[in-house]
Design a protein around this nucleic acid. Structure first.
Lengths: 136, 136
DNA sequence: AGTGGTTTGGTACTTTAGTATGAGCTATAT
DNA sequence: ATATAGCTCATACTAAAGTACCAAACCACT
């Protein structure tokens, strides 16, 4: 939000600056009006592209970004979240245990708690729910 | 490609038109130069936004589209693909069977064949691979 | 020093998942 | 007509996954 205001502020400043430049240029006859207008058109054309790319990028990223607040709301601990990531990579409990240097029993406990917190019956369902919540 | 050429052609035409309009407007003194320049700036600003939005939209859709050719390449049958979708919804074999009106045994067969074709050890891994291949 | 939350891990058990194999049934292409 | 491929289903089995319960160790906070 603050960035948007800043960008538009700079945009207005640039616009005013171009006004003055073009006025003097046309009056003094140093440059012809076509050239000034073409320059302005091109500059604003690319400003439009640039701003749009930024805002669209934010949107697409926003849907892909992880909702860390949701993870907290669901009361999922750091370790449980690591296990969830392991599941999303298609690993077995044993493999997740090896990756995190703990026993398979521990992973089972984490998975069981995760399923309760995500209100899922299976790990595949947990993945689906986690995706809906944008936490993976 | 053809559309791009058309759009840029129209863009150039619009530019030329604006040149003429602005020239006459400034010479005849009907409009002041600030107004003309501001109009041009705004018009091209929005043209930039519009064109960018279109091109970006195509890109984001392309990456999300399902690669049906890849499904064929992997030799995945229609029924097997339906089972894969069931898995991605987090359903159990039994639930997938109920959804497709076949027995759990049948689903097990399909799943087993799917895992072989996707070169996966588990259904969760199959999901991960299927996502990489853009087939779900 | 005690409390609460997290992490760890074990046992014992039930439930799913997955494999291997065989077999019957269709539609379709040769 | 007879392969061929896909879909169906069953049995019997092994391997994971998941539940329930318990308990110890740890860390941060008061």
């Amino acid at each position: 939000m603050k960035k948007t205001i800043l960008v538009f502020g700079l945009l207005i400043l640039a616009l005013l600056l171009l006004f003055q430049i073009s006025k003097y240029a046309i009056i003094s006859g140093d440059l012809n009006s076509e050239f000034v207008i073409a320059t302005i058109a091109i500059v604003f054309f690319f400003i439009g592209i640039y701003l749009n790319k930024k805002s669209l990028h934010k949107q697409t990223n926003a849907t892909k970004e992880i909702d860390y607040k949701k993870i907290e709301d669901l009361d999922i601990s750091k370790r449980e979240y690591e296990v969830l990531l392991g599941i999303s990579e298609g690993l077995s409990n044993k493999e997740i245990g090896e990756k995190l240097f703990v026993s398979e029993s521990t992973i089972k406990t984490h998975v069981s708690n995760l399923l309760t917190k995500l209100n899922a019956k299976r790990r595949t369902q947990a993945l689906q729910i986690a995706k809906d919540f944008n936490i993976i």
